[in-house]
Nucleic acid binder design. Structure first.
Length: 107
DNA sequence: TTAGTGACTGTAG
DNA sequence: GCTACAGCCACTA
């Protein structure tokens, strides 16, 4: 069964460049339902068991907060991965978030 | 089949 | 700036 929604979410998330981040709303907007951002997060949750690696740690809410960190193996995993890419995080919030924000305009 | 839930966002007060 | 409400789609029980 091809839901379509999942594949679109995965496809966009996989396009996020190294050291960049995006938001659930932007992804949902590209799919066609900006208000279905909740589904994006939920799809990413399922992506943890996907065969191919999905950089879900690069997806945060519109405030730049790591709301999904709790869904990783360890709460620090998401922060560690982002810091590993040169992204600074303070109090679960991405610093210079607006500058690191990536827009999937090539999709 | 119906009802409940969710890693969110935009609008309104 | 904050709080509150509604909407969105797919999944699970």
């Amino acid at each position: 069964m091809e839901t379509g929604f999942f594949e679109k979410v995965y496809d966009i998330v996989r396009q996020i460049p190294y050291g960049r981040v995006t938001t659930y709303g932007i992804i949902a907007a590209h799919i066609g339902s900006p208000q279905a951002a909740r589904m994006v997060g939920w799809a990413l949750n399922k992506s943890a068991g996907e065969k191919e690696f999905i950089p879900a740690h690069r997806v945060v809410n519109r405030k730049g907060l790591l709301t999904g960190k709790h869904y990783f193996a360890n709460e620090n995993t998401m922060k560690e991965m982002l810091e590993s890419e040169g992204i600074k995080i303070i109090d679960n919030q991405i610093q210079n978030f607006k500058d690191l924000l990536w827009h999937p305009d090539s999709y």
